[in-house]
Design a protein around this nucleic acid. Structure first.
Lengths: 123, 123
DNA sequence: GGTGTCACTTCCTGCAAGGGAAGTACTTCC
DNA sequence: GGAAGTACTTCCCTTGCAGGAAGTGACACC
C-alpha cells in the first residue's frame, strides 16, 4: 500500500483497499454487531443468553442486529424443539472467517487497556 | 474462548475478551476513523490530501476525527514549515499496531465483494 | 491590495440510530 | 386458569452523529 505516485495520485489497488475497509465496517456497523460476533465466536447462544451477555442491549436492538447479521450470511438462526421454544444463534462458516479480525481486535483492546492503566499510574 | 460453564456462566477471561472488542471498536468509532487509519497506513498525508482521499468527508468531520485519533496516540500531527503552512498526519508506532487489523479488514472486504458479485450472477 | 492556498472552526440543521416501555404469541408448569 | 418463560414486535421519543455552508487567519504570490 505504500504507493503514492509522488504527484499525489493513488493507485486503483489502493482505492480498492480503502473501499474494502469501508465495506467490512458497514457489515459490522452499529453499536453491537462486532460484540455479538465476538460472543458468538465463543459458541452457539440462545436469544436470552445473548441479551444477558451483551450488557445494555434491549430486545429490539438485539433482534435487529441479529437479523442484519443473518441477512449477510454471518449468523444462522435455528429454532430448537425444546420445552419452551428456544432459538439458537451460531456463526456460519462465513461468519467464522471474521473471527481472526475480532480476536485481533480483542487482543489489541487488552493491550490498550494495559497501556492506558500504565499511563495513568506513570503520570 | 470456547468456555461456557455449562450452567450458562462465563469466565472472567471471556468477559475481558468481549470488553476488549468493545474498547477497540470505541477507539475506532465513528464513520471515518477506520478508513483514515487505513489510508494513513499507506503513508503520511497532509490535511487536504486526506480530505480528497476520504471521499465525502467534510473539513469539520476530518479535523474532529483526526483530533480524536491524536488524543488516543494513534496519529501524530506535525506542522511543516513549507510555503503555505501544511500539516502532516502520520501513524504513530502505536497506530501502526492497528495495521494488521485494518489490512485484514480490507482483505475480508475484498473477498466479500467478490462473493456478493458471484451470488448476484449465480442467482 | 486583491486573489489564492492551506488548515481549520463555527453555526445551523436534520435525520436516523438507538433507548424505554409495553404488548404479543406460544407453551408448559402448578 | 393463572403465572412464568422464551422470543420476539410495536410504538413513541430522544439524542447525538453528521452534513452544508460559510467564516477565519496566516502567509505568499502577482
Amino acid at each position: 500500500m505504500g504507493n503514492t505516485a509522488a504527484n499525489g495520485h493513488i493507485s486503483e489497488e489502493c482505492k480498492r483497499h480503502f473501499k474494502a475497509i469501508r465495506d467490512t465496517q458497514d457489515i459490522l456497523s452499529g453499536k453491537w454487531k462486532m460484540l455479538i460476533m465476538g460472543i458468538l465466536g465463543s459458541g452457539t447462544r440462545r436469544y436470552l443468553e445473548l441479551q444477558r451477555l451483551v450488557k445494555g442491549i434491549g430486545p429490539k436492538m438485539l433482534s435487529k442486529e441479529l437479523q442484519e447479521l443473518e441477512i449477510n450470511g454471518l449468523v444462522s438462526r435455528t429454532v430448537m424443539q425444546t420445552k419452551p421454544l428456544t432459538v439458537a444463534y451460531t456463526l456460519t462458516d462465513y461468519g467464522k472467517s471474521l473471527k481472526p479480525i475480532l480476536d485481533d481486535m480483542a487482543e489489541w483492546g487488552k493491550n490498550h487497556r494495559e497501556r492506558v492503566i500504565k499511563d495513568l499510574s506513570n503520570q
